[in-house]
Amino acid sequence: MLPAQARLRRRPEFTTVVRSGRRAGRPTMVVHLLPERPAHAGGEPARGPEARAMTPSGARAGFVVGKSVGNSVVRHRVTRRLRAAVREELDRLPATADLVVRARPEAATADWADLRSDLRRGLDRLLDRRAGR
């Protein structure tokens, strides 16, 4: 399980990452990375002392697993596997990064090694591009 502060939860946060971030397509997923989240990532901006408390202090991740992947049981299994794979890779990301992983229908039949490999390769591509290589 990812800690609560490491998860994207609101629709505007997902939308910002998908629209403004970089994307790497893999056979089982599409990885979206926004290396620098906006000051007010989604929703109404917070004011006062609560603004500092609400500011996330590390990389965050969110998952999109639609009905095209499969039924509820399959979608939840894919989400759990993706969450575990992202947990292993989260420390590679900048502290201000937001990540969205969108599962493709092929993720339903992929094994753990394939999902992990696709995530690593997608992140390698995005992080190398960010570093200017």
Rank of each mutant, 00 (worst) to 15 (best):
S20E: 14
V30F: 02
R23L: 13
P49E: 13
R47H: 06
G25C: 11
V31K: 03
P45E: 05
A41Y: 01
A53S: 07
L34I: 06
M29N: 00
R23H: 10
G42Y: 03
H40D: 12
G48E: 03
M54I: 00
G43W: 00
A53H: 00
A46F: 05
L33M: 05
A46E: 12
G21S: 11
G48R: 09
E44C: 02
P49F: 05
R52M: 04
A39Q: 11
V31N: 01
V31P: 05
A51H: 02
M29A: 13
M54Q: 13
E50V: 08
A41F: 08
T28S: 12
P38C: 05
L34F: 07
G48I: 11
P45Y: 00
R37Q: 06
P45D: 06
V17H: 09
G21R: 08
T16D: 15
G25R: 09
G42V: 01
E44P: 13
G21V: 10
T16W: 04
P35L: 05
A53Y: 00
E50A: 12
G43Q: 01
G25E: 12
M29R: 07
P49A: 09
P49K: 10
L33R: 01
T28H: 04
R26E: 15
V30L: 11
V17K: 08
G42S: 03
L33T: 03
G42A: 00
V17Q: 12
M29D: 06
R23P: 09
A39D: 12
G42F: 02
E44V: 14
T28W: 01
H32C: 10
G25Q: 07
R37C: 02
G25V: 11
A39E: 12
R19C: 03
S20T: 14
G25N: 12
L33Q: 06
M29G: 05
R22T: 12
A24V: 09
R52Y: 01
E44H: 04
A51I: 04
L34M: 07
A46S: 13
A41N: 10
A46Q: 13
R26K: 11
